[in-house]
Every structure is written in structure tokens, then in C-alpha cells.
Design a protein around this nucleic acid. Structure first.
Length: 430
RNA sequence: GUGGGUGUAGUUCAGUUGGUAGAGCCCCUGAUUGUGGUUCAGGUGGUCGCCGGUUCAAGCCCGGUCACCCACCCCA
């Protein structure tokens, strides 16, 4: 019985053309990180199940995970996200100079049904600062995020960075009369607002609040468009959590990050966020999921001992970002159609293979990317091969060339033929 | 886990009330035996997802099953 030609559902497999696009995206992300002084790290793909059970959130660690018992009887999991591993790595380093600014491009795994922008094995770019409690850390990571969008030439009109604060929302909800016991349900209801019709959502919210008067207040809170809203200022009088988001809003304005807007409806799913939270969404509606989610987590590093180290960072889906970029034609043609070489060496007959190889070595030493024919087909087919690859020049090696040391190089775009020694050809190619 | 859609050549798809399987593109060969693109002539390639049922006869009808896609849940 023949084996299936398909990979397991949702697992990555990249043909060169697809891989080139993904590489362009990840290279750009790395560049933005490095420009902001972030250093790359990596962690294990297989982790103890308990690492995620504690703080990641019920579904992520439970239903949506690849977990199994290994041969030593340990409950293990293929990491569904990176941040807990990062927290452990930082907690384990006794002499680490804080704060640290690290980034990573891990493969992560979630067992869910694949759909557009959601697969089971995916790259998730992560960028974090640990060991700083200053709002400057939040600002810095959002600046990197903004820098990423700028480098991809995404105009501000097609995306938005919505942000809020868990601390603030907990405080504000309490002031609205939401009981602590129903807070989680209310958060969950708030999170769903944009996905539902108005009346349905109102009903859901009233359900979660167990009171329509409280629900009305929560609805007003979530729809507050600005921090200077009189109703909001009245509600939050004397609140330090409100002061914090006003201060952060001021920082964003002063730096000129106009794509970041205060959005009380932003809650984020992961349980470990405690302070500022944010997400980046496509405003065009073509990709209705968030491309990126992040925030501050105060208690994650503390899980590994007595150290209290606060962190702030975000995860960004390479696949979701790529779909976003493709939707708006932001992947350059030069990436999509990149040729694998500058020159193709056509070999007339098996007698010239060694000479062609020597010529290839010569060009490669000069830093020129050279593809030597290995098909053994007729000369015309070799030219077609070069054409298919998008290679711009073809040098033919036959008995005449080997004897005289002069080679003919044809530029495929205009058909012009140049004849010369390897040195002359090389100079022309550079 | 829930709901909807689609499975026919490498690929994109057509296929009439059930009557022996089709097109474009791609690929291969030649015209052009040392030079690509355009053109022309020819050619390869399908257990119609799989299993069963109805029928003289099934790509088409019925039942089941699997796979993929989309949406929900959740999230990158």
C-alpha cells in the first residue's frame, strides 16, 4: 500500500517558493529585533505539561495541545507558545543582567482544526523585555512592533494596535459593580464584542454581569472612545490604574505612535497577563484574527522560585502576518520571483562537464551564484531550464570554448551575446 | 468538539434526464542534431477520494467513510 503524499494535517511543509516568502518575513522580523538591541534565544520544543497548565489558560494547555507521556512516564507537551519557557530560562539564570531584551522564532504546536491562518505547527515570533517595570518597556516593544509594520511598508490605514490594561479593567469593572466572582465571565464577554451583533452581545453581557444596570455601565466602559471621556474620568476618579493608562497613552502620543489606540475591549486570552495588554489587528476585515498579541506579565517568572521579575512582550504569528502582507500585496515581487542564481552554465556534452565545473568554481569564488547544468538535456532545453528559474544569463561550455578559453554568455532578457574570458565574464556579472 | 462546502489528469476546472472520460495550462517529443521566449505538429498522463447499495448500465442516484477548504470554539 502506497504511503500518503500529504503531511499530517496542519503540519508545515514548504516548497522553495513558499519558503522564500516565509524567510523574507522572518528575516525582516529578525532585522527589526536586532535594530532595537534584542538578542535571539531558543528553547526546547518538548516541555513538561505542567509548565503550561498553570498560566497559559485552560483550552490552550488542555484541549488544544499536543501532549503525551514519554518513555520515562513524564507528561510532556509540544510547546503551544514560548513565553513560559522564556520565563523559566530567565528564572534559572542567577547572574543575568536585568533587564534582558530577547527575541525568538520558535515553532509552536496547537492541536486544533486547521483553517485560514490557523495551523497545527506554526512559527510564532516572540519579543520580550524582562526585568523592567517601567512603562518604557511597554513603549519599547510597541515601538518595535510599529517598526515592523513600517519596514513592511504597511500603511497605517490597514491595521490598528489596540491596547488596554488588565489591571485597569479589573479596577474599572469593580467600580461598575461587577463582582469578583463574575469578572472572568465579563472579561470573556468583552472579548467577544466585535464578533457579535449588538443585541446578542448586550444579552450575553447582561448574563455575565447578572444585572442589567451593571451591564449598562460595563457597556459604556467598553465603548469609551477616549481617556478624556467625562463619564470615564468620573468613574475612575482617584484610580492609580487609570493614571497608569493615561500616562502610557501620553507616551504613545508624544512618540507619535498613532496606530496604537486605547481599546477597552482588548482583553487577550492568555491568563498570565496582568497589566497593559495589546493586539494588532487587520482593519480591512480580510484577516479577522489578531496578527499579534502581547502584554505585561508580572507573575510568570515567580513560578520558578522567589524571584519576582516582571516581563512584557508579544507573540506574532508568522503565518497570519504573511497572509496579511499578501492580502495587501506587500510581499515584493523580487522576493516571490527571486532567481536562485545569476548565471546558468549550459554544458554541451558529457565531455565538457569537468570544464563547466571549473568555470563554476571560478565564478563562485568571485561571489557569483552559479547553477551548472546537471540535466544532460539538449542545449535548447538547458536554456529553457535557465529561463524557468528566472536566471538572467547563460554561459555555454562546448569543445570550442574549452579549446580557446573564450566563452559566450547570453543575456536572456535581450538576447545579447557577450564573448570573453572567464575573468571578463565575471567582471561583467558583478 | 460544532456547523457548512468541495472531492474528476501534475494543476485549474467542465462533464446534459444515468449510456464506454474532456478542455485550458503544465510537462514530454519534433520542426530548430551549439542557444530560451513566439508559433506549428504530435504525445504522455485519470481505480472520477474510498467502501458498499440501486440499475442491463453509475463520475452522475442512495448509504457510509476518509480527506481537504471555510466558519465557530480558542488563539498567533
Amino acid at each position: 500500500m502506497a504511503l500518503s503524499t500529504k503531511p499530517l494535517s496542519g503540519m508545515r511543509q514548504r516548497l522553495p517558493g513558499e519558503f522564500r516568502v516565509e524567510k523574507y518575513v522572518t528575516d525582516t522580523l529578525s532585522l527589526c529585533s536586532v535594530q532595537a538591541g534584542f538578542e535571539e534565544y531558543d528553547g526546547p520544543v518538548v516541555e513538561p505539561f505542567a509548565l503550561f497548565a498553570a498560566k497559559s489558560g485552560g483550552e490552550l494547555a488542555g484541549k488544544q495541545s499536543y501532549c503525551f507521556t514519554d518513555r520515562g512516564g513524564r507528561e510532556v507537551i509540544l510547546r503551544p507558545e514560548m513565553t513560559p519557557s522564556l520565563a523559566r530560562m530567565v528564572a534559572a539564570q542567577g547572574e543575568l543582567q536585568l533587564p534582558v531584551r530577547w527575541y525568538s522564532m520558535p515553532l509552536c504546536y496547537r492541536y486544533e482544526r486547521p483553517q485560514r491562518g490557523r495551523v497545527r505547527e506554526f512559527l510564532q515570533y516572540n519579543l520580550d523585555i524582562l526585568g523592567s517595570e517601567s512603562l518604557a518597556a511597554e513603549l519599547e516593544v510597541i515601538l518595535v512592533l510599529q517598526g515592523i509594520m513600517n519596514l513592511f511598508r504597511a500603511p497605517a490605514s490597514i491595521y490598528r494596535i489596540g491596547w488596554s490594561s488588565r489591571r485597569f479593567m479589573a479596577d474599572a469593572l469593580a467600580r461598575c459593580g461587577v463582582d469578583q466572582s463574575t469578572r472572568a465571565a465579563v472579561f470573556s464577554a468583552i472579548d467577544k464584542r466585535d464578533k457579535m451583533k449588538g443585541e446578542v452581545w448586550t444579552e450575553l453581557l447582561a448574563d455575565a454581569c447578572a444585572s442589567s444596570t451593571i451591564a449598562d455601565k460595563v457597556a459604556s466602559l467598553v465603548s469609551a472612545g477616549s481617556l478624556s471621556d467625562p463619564w470615564l474620568m468620573d468613574l475612575m476618579q482617584g484610580s492609580s490604574t487609570f493614571d497608569e493608562i493615561v500616562k502610557f497613552n501620553g507616551l504613545l502620543e508624544d512618540v507619535g505612535v498613532t496606530s496604537a489606540v486605547f481599546s477597552p475591549g482588548v482583553v487577550r486570552g492568555l491568563d498570565y497577563y496582568t497589566g497593559i495588554v495589546f493586539e494588532l489587528v487587520d482593519t480591512g476585515g480580510e484577516n479577522n484574527r489578531s496578527l499579534c498579541g502581547g502584554g505585561r506579565y508580572d507573575d510568570l517568572v515567580g513560578l520558578f522560585g522567589n524571584k519576582k521579575i516582571s516581563g512584557v512582550g508579544f507573540g506574532l504569528g508568522v503565518l497570519t502576518l504573511t497572509l496579511f502582507l499578501e492580502t495587501y500585496s506587500l510581499i515584493p515581487d523580487s522576493v516571490k520571483k527571486a532567481a536562485p542564481a545569476e548565471v546558468y552554465i549550459a554544458v554541451l556534452s558529457p565531455d565538457e562537464i569537468a570544464s563547466a565545473g571549473s568555470l563554476a568554481i571560478f565564478f563562485r569564488r568571485d561571489g557569483i551564484r552559479v547553477m551548472m547544468d546537471v540535466s544532460g538535456k539538449k542545449l535548447g532545453k538547458q536554456y529553457s531550464e535557465a529561463e524557468r528559474y528566472g536566471i538572467s544569463s547563460v554561459v555555454t561550455v562546448g569543445p570550442d570554448e574549452v579549446e580557446t578559453g573564450l566563452y559566450r554568455m547570453k543575456t536572456l532578457s535581450d538576447g545579447v551575446v557577450f564573448t570573453g574570458s572567464p575573468e571578463e565574464l565575471s567582471r561583467r556579472l558583478r
